[in-house]
Write a protein that binds this DNA or RNA. Structure first.
Length: 553
RNA sequence: GCGCCAGUAGCUCAGUUGGAUAGAGCAACGGACUUCUAAUCCGUAGGCCGAGGGUUCGAAUCCUUCCUGGCGCGCCA
């Protein structure tokens, strides 16, 4: 709709140049069209005359007059008016809006999709929590945001892969192994002193018990081997928990990528060798450093420590180099905001290899403040006051949980009140939106009983849809595609959430003011056509965010 | 000390590439169910967009200085 109008405006501008009414010949890169907040300002507005004021050296309103003289000739435009300092306001013919409904009906569950991302391969890596403990609420937010970002990108035509990076190498693995091993010895009746830096949580005892049940007593193996066995066992078990939790949350990954395998395949050494060949790394004090200061980092970073072991950064560098070698045009990492200090060195590393800064986009997920009845719910691994993601989902419900995580832009902190999220009332926005969907379904059931069927595009008489609120509703529906595009381009899935709330509000208001099923059959059918278009868009948006669209509530 | 994110109504937050009179929900107050689901709707009230300066036709939005809160600044992961 917008694109169509842009063409019309461009043609009018060119005509003005041909006629010599305007002389600069200036063609704007893109004609800016906005959706006015004030309905008096029409369906669309452009500031074109104001931006042309400088090159034309004429008053904006003069330029607008010339353009309007051309534009009124177009049948698409019902009215074209000049307003304020030089805005041109358009009101489109009702026919244009009725065509939108037909598009929705014909396209069904694909309505809203576009191809702006066609040909671009993007990888979204998210969650990537260490497999040393169950997922908590912070991981949940990252999981939902990552999943939704991937979904809107897909809807906008990008080719998307969802990946989980498993940090199954490094010190934390040994710590996990040792923790399980100690608990296991405890179970076998030994008196042990549990170290300060071990994992103290209850689930370690569960893992130890399970190990014992499945594998029996620890045999005479030496300590290092026993710890390693416990670690391997623990990682595998916890990974299963994580996979199960994500599944109940409705999140699926295309690819699980193991850090350990990165080492086993020799990828880390290979990639580090490439850096060395390019002169990006250097040795100093027995350690290997990456020269990240050349591209904006505060200091150079260690890849291989003086004791010969690798830093976490080393495998991360190799991992990201390999991502691009896999053919992705762009790579998105979803991280907890506490890792933000890491961004400059990663970007510097890629810049050294000739990548543009925007090839890697890091989405920082701000902290989640867990509350219960408005009071902070302090989580301490040691206090025992620990609540896992699974417990939150079980208590609050999947849809409400997802919706809360998506309601805010991810770079602002989120207060998550368990009692509030749990409420199945008007206080809970997720039900407000889902209720709109259920309401249309209910109307459909009543229509069916009354023998009224939803008309097809060629049998509907859209001329019955002329109330201002009906046209406003269609305008909102028409914005769905551009909303998804905006959410995709800016990596901001919360835009879809706000869109959904606006659409639901408009529908509820319309529903309260007007009956769909009235005495006049043509009007009933046309309104049924309209509300079912609303239903389709609600369902598409809900599905995009991983939310259900219930038919009854 | 340096860096990142945030600061908008009593509370929680939106606000598109800089656009017209800054919006929504909750809370408060007043209304609407013999009518397709009241998990809904309609109305009232509520603002120094953290503060100052700058850029321009035009700033919550861009630049700059400061204030406040959160988080980072390892040869940890």
């Amino acid at each position: 709709m917008k694109q169509q109008l842009r063409q019309v405006i461009l043609a009018a501008l060119q005509q003005c140049y041909v006629d010599g009414i305007l002389s600069s010949g200036e063609l704007p890169g893109e004609i800016q069209l906005e959706n006015p907040k004030n309905p008096d300002h029409g369906d669309f507005a452009t500031n074109l005359a104001m931006t042309l004021a400088k090159p034309e050296r004429k008053a904006p309103r003069k330029i607008a007059e010339a353009l309007v003289a051309e534009l009124v000739k177009n049948p698409l435009c019902e009215t074209v008016e000049i307003a304020g300092p030089g805005f041109i306001n358009f009101r489109l013919a009702a026919k244009c809006w009725h065509d939108v409904l037909e598009q929705i009906m014909v396209q069904g569950d694909t309505f809203g999709r576009s191809e702006i991302g066609a040909g671009t391969k993007i990888q979204v890596e998210f969650v990537s929590a260490n497999p040393t403990g169950p997922l908590h609420i912070g991981h949940g937010r990252g999981a939902v945001v990552g999943d939704a970002v991937a979904a809107v990108l897909q809807a906008a035509g990008f080719e998307v892969q969802r990946e989980y990076y498993i940090n199954d190498a490094g010190n934390q693995v040994t710590t996990l192994g040792r923790s399980i091993w100690l608990r296991l010895r405890e179970l076998q009746g030994e008196e042990i002193t549990f170290p300060e830096d071990g994992y103290q949580a209850e689930y370690i005892n569960e893992l130890a018990a399970k190990y014992r049940a499945e594998r029996g007593e620890l045999a005479g193996a030496n300590e290092a081997e026993a710890i390693k066995a416990c670690a391997t066992f623990g990682i595998a078990e916890i990974l299963e928990w994580i996979k199960a939790d994500l599944q109940t949350f409705g999140i699926e990954f295309d690819h699980w990528y193991s850090e350990q395998q990165l080492y086993d395949r020799g990828m880390v050494d290979q990639e580090l060798a490439k850096l060395k060949d390019k002169g990006l790394s250097f040795e100093q004090e027995d350690a290997l450093w990456l020269r990240t200061t050349e591209h904006g980092d505060d200091k150079d970073r260690v890849l291989i420590k003086s004791d010969g072991s690798y830093t976490y950064f080393a495998s991360d560098v190799a991992y990201h180099m390999e991502k691009f070698e896999r053919g992705f045009d762009r790579v998105i990492d979803v991280w907890g905001a506490d890792h933000h200090g890491y961004i400059p060195r990663m970007k510097a590393m890629l810049a050294g290899l000739g990548h543009a800064p925007e090839d890697l986009e890091v989405l920082l997920i701000q902290m989640v403040n867990l509350l219960r009845d408005g009071k902070p719910f302090i989580m301490g691994k040691r206090s025992g006051n620990f609540i896992t993601l699974k417990e939150v989902i079980d208590e609050v419900g999947r849809d409400a949980c997802r919706f809360y995580f998506l309601m805010r832009r991810c770079d602002s902190q989120l207060d998550f009140d368990l009692e509030l999220a749990k409420q199945q009332s008007s206080d809970n926005p997720v039900y407000y939106v889902q209720y709109a969907h259920a309401r249309v379904c209910s109307i459909n059931r009543n229509a069916e009983t009354a023998g009224v069927t939803v008309p097809t595009s060629d049998t509907v008489d859209c001329s019955c849809l002329k109330l201002p609120e009906e046209l406003a509703l269609i305008r909102q529906l028409a914005r769905f595609t551009e909303t998804i595009e905006g959410a995709a381009v800016h990596y901001e899935p919360h835009r879809v959430v706000f869109y959904l709330q606006d659409l639901a509000a408009q529908f509820h208001s319309y529903y309260n003011k007007n009956r769909v099923l009235v005495d006049d059959p043509a009007t009933s059918r046309a309104r049924l056509y309209l509300v079912n278009s609303v239903r389709i868009v609600l369902a598409n948006a809900l599905s995009l965010l991983g939310l259900s669209a219930p038919e009854r509530m």
